[in-house]
Design a protein around this nucleic acid. Structure first.
Lengths: 207, 207
DNA sequence: CTAGCATTGTGAAACATTTCACAAAAACGG
DNA sequence: CCGTTTTTGTGAAATGTTTCACAATGCTAG
């Protein structure tokens, strides 16, 4: 498959959300114009984005909603379930565990780790918080697809290294640090400070 | 000021973080090469990014660390403090209130709102959670610079509209919805589902 | 069955961002 | 003081992304 821009993938995800709404309302077909309108883009962009993956529409009619939902789910890899390990049982970790959208989209948290003795052994959403020292023991043969790192910046790289050794191929990183991993491992960093600072920049240099 | 790409601003924010580390270590000057290395980019990119805002380096030597820190803080609007209202006292809101980096970078949460009667009146980090019905009463004359929206998607747009009327010019939005606001209001959306889905896409279509 | 209409799919053009490559400047060693 | 080395700042080239514009297609109505 030829390389598709990350911006395209992000829009695909937005289209999917809109399409799911349309589907719930029983709408059968939708035009690129309608998909663009609520998604903050243009109809040409929608058609171009979809055309990277195939021809899903009918000229004169638009796109069939249920079929396009199925296609987009397959493209985004959301037609399967993922086994997720959560590293760091702090406030954000806690919010994530309880976030419905997580499980809804196929991501099952199957293990939770922390260093804090006060947290280790506690029950969390049906899972026992384990000592991060036992990461290797617990995750070998656990068939983990993805790890969510919610730790202080200082330990994030060391943990990423251990996860890579364990064969984890995707990391969602909330630590405010650029992780370095091999090419075959995907990392996505959510950096709140970064968002705040770009907001601050735009506020300062508005218009 | 000519328009500068958002990607440039995000890198500036990363450079600032690295520079603060260098400063703490007492390093006096740094080359574009050194700044790029840990920031995941190239030296040419670093120089180009900085050149949008001025000439801060000395040829043959590099950039003076403390001066560049000061400059970047000014560029990003981090040389002042912001008064922030938090709308939504749930799990994520709670994590944000306690996030050190928030206050550290100049963002002071000065008001918290929720709809839940069980939460209204409770003390949160020295602030009383107020009824969101009283948003207008509480925020008129409160000189709010920024609002953080942590609410269900269904009510986010209505709240954004009310914030706009109150004169708020920047919104950090955690609701998984595209907010529509006037041109002079800046919105930055942090959408966890989006991040998960791009991660899922890359995992599925790896290599 | 045909005309008219709506809407897709897609090359080409326009625009944006990154990378290249090198002259200019500054420091340093001798 | 001069040659060598380092590293910036920046036009120009290369690459990447979005927008344009229109032929192709299929639907609908008569």
């Amino acid at each position: 498959m030829r390389k598709v821009a990350e911006s395209t993938i992000r829009r695909l995800s937005l289209y999917l959300r809109l399409l799911e709404e349309f589907e719930a309302q029983g709408i059968a077909t939708v035009s690129s114009e309608a998909l663009a309108g609520r998604g903050g883009t243009t109809s040409a962009q929608v058609r171009k984005d979809l055309s990277f993956f195939g021809s899903f529409g009918k000229r004169g009619l638009g796109y069939p909603v249920p079929e396009l939902v199925t296609e987009l789910r397959a493209i985004l890899g959301l037609d399967r379930r993922y086994r997720v390990a959560l590293i760091g049982a702090g406030k954000i970790g806690s919010a994530l565990v309880q976030y419905r959208g997580f499980r809804q989209r196929g991501f099952d948290i199957v293990a939770i780790f922390d260093v804090d003795p006060a947290k280790i052994g506690r029950q969390w959403n049906g899972l026992v918080v384990q000592d991060v020292a036992r990461l290797e023991a617990a995750l070998t043969d656990a068939r983990i697809d993805m790890a969510v790192l919610v730790t202080p910046a200082e330990v994030a790289q060391a943990l990423a290294d251990r996860l890579v050794v364990l064969g984890v191929k995707a990391i969602l990183n909330f630590a405010p640090i650029q992780l370095s991993v091999p090419d075959d491992v995907v990392v996505k960093t959510v950096n709140l400070a970064l968002e705040l600072e770009t907001l601050s920049y735009e506020l300062t240099n508005r218009q």
